[in-house]
Each structure stands twice: as C-alpha cells, then as structure tokens.
Lab assay of single mutants.
Amino acid sequence: VRQEELAAARAALHDLMTGKRVATVQKDGRRVEFTATSVSDLKKYIAELEVQTGM
C-alpha cells in the first residue's frame, strides 16, 4: 500500500511542478489536496513515505 501512496504522491508533485493548480492524494485513508503553495508539505509527505518503504 505504501508503494502505491508513494507513487501517487510523486505523481501529484509532478503535476504541481508542471503547472497543475491542485493535486489530490489519499493520505491515511482520507483525501488531501495540495497546491503550489503546499509543495514543501507534499515533499515532506513523500520523504516520510520513502522512509516507511525503505527507499
């Protein structure tokens, strides 16, 4: 499950970095929206997932 969450989070980051205004991911069973202003929060979430998956 964590691998899927990590892939979704990375895709969301890619979307935001390429101009999409809002990206949505499932985080702990709930839907979370990230915007360009919350990229740093999304990067932290990705880092947490990488630690949890041993990457």
Rank of each mutant, 00 (worst) to 15 (best):
G54K: 08
Y45V: 05
I46D: 01
M17S: 06
I46W: 01
A47Q: 12
G19Q: 03
T18I: 09
E5Y: 07
K43S: 05
L13W: 04
T18E: 11
Y45P: 00
V32C: 08
V22N: 07
V32R: 05
D41P: 01
T24C: 13
K27N: 05
E33I: 09
A8N: 10
A47R: 10
A9D: 00
K44R: 13
T35D: 15
K43D: 04
Q3K: 12
L49C: 01
K43M: 13
M55D: 13
K20G: 10
G54S: 11
V1H: 14
A8Y: 06
T37L: 11
V22A: 09
F34I: 07
R21C: 11
K44T: 08
A36T: 11
Q52G: 10
T35W: 08
E5N: 07
V32N: 04
G19N: 05
E5T: 08
T53G: 11
M55V: 15
D15I: 05
T35P: 07
A47C: 10
Q3D: 11
L13M: 05
K44M: 10
A7R: 12
Q26I: 15
M17I: 08
M55E: 13
E33Q: 08
T53H: 11
E50W: 04
S40C: 11
Q3I: 14
R30M: 15
E5Q: 11
G54R: 09
K44V: 09
Q26V: 15
L49W: 03
Y45Q: 03
L42V: 02
D41I: 07
G19I: 01
V25L: 10
T53Q: 12
S38P: 01
F34A: 04
G19A: 02
I46T: 00
Y45N: 02
L6H: 02
L49K: 01
T24E: 12
R30L: 12
R10G: 02
M55H: 13
L49S: 01
K44F: 06
R10A: 04
T37V: 10
V39G: 02
A8S: 12
M17W: 02
K43H: 08
R30E: 12
V39Y: 03
E50M: 08
G29Q: 04
R31M: 15
V32A: 05
M17H: 06
A36H: 13
T53K: 06
A11P: 00
A23L: 01
E4K: 11
A9E: 01
L13Q: 01
Q3N: 12
E4S: 12
L6W: 03
H14T: 08
Q52C: 09
T53Y: 13
D28R: 03
K20S: 12
R10F: 04
E50G: 04
R2P: 12
V39P: 01
L6I: 06
K43V: 14
A47G: 07
L42M: 02
T35R: 04
K44G: 06
E4P: 08
Y45I: 09
V25G: 03
A36M: 13
G29P: 01
L13Y: 06
F34S: 03
M55N: 14
V25F: 02
E5R: 08
L6C: 03
G19Y: 00
V39N: 01
A8M: 13
T24A: 13
G54E: 12
G19E: 03
K20Y: 03
G29C: 04
V1W: 08
I46S: 00
R10N: 06
H14S: 08
L13C: 05
A11L: 09
F34K: 03
V39C: 07
A7N: 13
D28F: 00
G29W: 00
E33C: 09
T18W: 07
Q3P: 09
D28S: 06
A23E: 03
V25I: 14
A12L: 04
V39I: 15
E4Q: 11
A11V: 08
R31F: 15
A11F: 02
K27A: 07
V25P: 02
D41K: 06
T53S: 14
L42R: 00
D41N: 06
